[in-house]
Amino acid sequence: MKILYFAGLRQRIGVGEEEIEPPPEIVDVAALIGWLRRRGPDFAEALADTSAIRIAVDQEFAAMDTSLAGAREVALFPPMTGG
């Protein structure tokens, strides 16, 4: 699964894109974020406040309970500030 981080999240985590293989029990977005947090202090800190994180699964907005079944690309980023 490809995972992308944007803006402030990318800076805090220190990587913009990576290939990950979460264990089979990671079935939804909430479980994935929990799993990512355990990968190190940078992840734990950047992903601590889920109210400040927006999620897209295969380029569609997703929620914490969105299933990851068949997901190829997950993106995590802060609230958008375009326009």
């Binding site: 609230p79 958008m80 326009g83």
Partner: peptide
């Protein structure tokens, strides 16, 4: 403004940078 995935990184006078908050 709220649905398109864009983010603004502002430059400040002291040479620093800051992500604009939504």
């Amino acid at each position: 403004k709220t649905k398109a995935p864009f983010w603004k990184l502002e430059e400040s006078a002291d040479g620093g940078e800051r992500w604009v908050a939504a």
